[in-house]
Measured scan of single mutants.
Amino acid sequence: SKDTIRINGIDIDVKDLHEEWKRLVEEALKRGDEELAIELLERALKE
């Protein structure tokens, strides 16, 4: 798994994120759902 995830052309540092969150965000991006990916990231970062 990578340490960054690219959303809207912005590389976001996710190395401190739990693997499960990372996977969910990557799944959302694979489906092209950037809005969901951002929402998941925000939730993950609050934890």
Rank of each mutant, 00 (worst) to 15 (best):
S1H: 13
S1N: 15
S1W: 05
S1G: 13
S1Q: 11
S1A: 12
K2I: 14
K2H: 12
K2N: 14
K2Q: 14
K2R: 13
K2G: 14
D3Y: 00
D3G: 08
D3V: 11
T4E: 05
T4H: 12
I5M: 06
I5Q: 03
I5P: 02
I5A: 03
I5R: 03
I5K: 04
I5S: 02
R6Y: 05
R6H: 11
R6C: 08
R6F: 06
I7T: 02
I7C: 03
I7Q: 02
I7S: 02
N8R: 15
N8Q: 12
N8V: 04
G9L: 04
G9N: 07
G9S: 05
I10S: 06
I10D: 04
I10A: 09
I10N: 08
I10H: 11
I10E: 11
D11Y: 09
D11Q: 08
I12A: 03
I12M: 09
I12D: 01
D13A: 08
D13I: 08
D13K: 07
V14Q: 03
V14S: 05
K15D: 07
K15I: 07
D16I: 09
D16A: 13
D16P: 05
L17G: 01
L17A: 02
L17F: 06
L17Y: 04
L17I: 14
L17Q: 01
L17E: 00
H18W: 07
E19V: 04
E19W: 08
E19L: 04
E19A: 05
E19M: 04
E20Q: 08
E20T: 06
W21T: 15
W21F: 11
W21G: 11
W21M: 15
K22V: 15
K22Q: 13
K22M: 12
K22W: 07
R23K: 14
R23Y: 12
R23E: 13
R23H: 10
R23C: 07
R23I: 10
R23Q: 15
L24E: 06
L24G: 02
L24M: 11
L24Y: 03
L24R: 06
V25C: 02
V25P: 00
V25A: 02
V25I: 13
V25H: 00
V25R: 00
E26V: 11
E26W: 10
E26R: 10
E27R: 03
E27F: 01
A28L: 10
A28G: 00
A28D: 00
A28F: 04
A28M: 05
L29P: 00
L29K: 01
L29C: 03
L29R: 02
K30M: 12
K30E: 15
R31T: 10
R31K: 12
R31V: 11
R31Q: 11
R31I: 07
G32H: 05
G32R: 02
G32T: 00
G32D: 04
D33F: 07
D33W: 05
D33R: 04
D33H: 07
D33V: 02
D33A: 05
E34S: 15
E34N: 15
E34L: 14
E35F: 15
E35P: 12
L36M: 11
A37F: 03
A37R: 00
A37G: 02
A37E: 00
A37L: 05
I38K: 15
I38E: 06
I38R: 15
I38M: 13
E39A: 13
E39N: 14
E39S: 14
E39V: 14
E39Y: 04
E39L: 06
L40C: 03
L40H: 02
L40E: 01
L40R: 02
L41S: 01
E42Y: 05
E42A: 07
E42I: 08
E42M: 07
R43L: 10
A44P: 00
A44Y: 11
L45D: 05
L45F: 10
L45E: 06
L45C: 08
L45I: 10
L45P: 04
L45H: 11
K46I: 07
K46C: 06
K46L: 13
E47H: 06
E47I: 05
E47D: 12
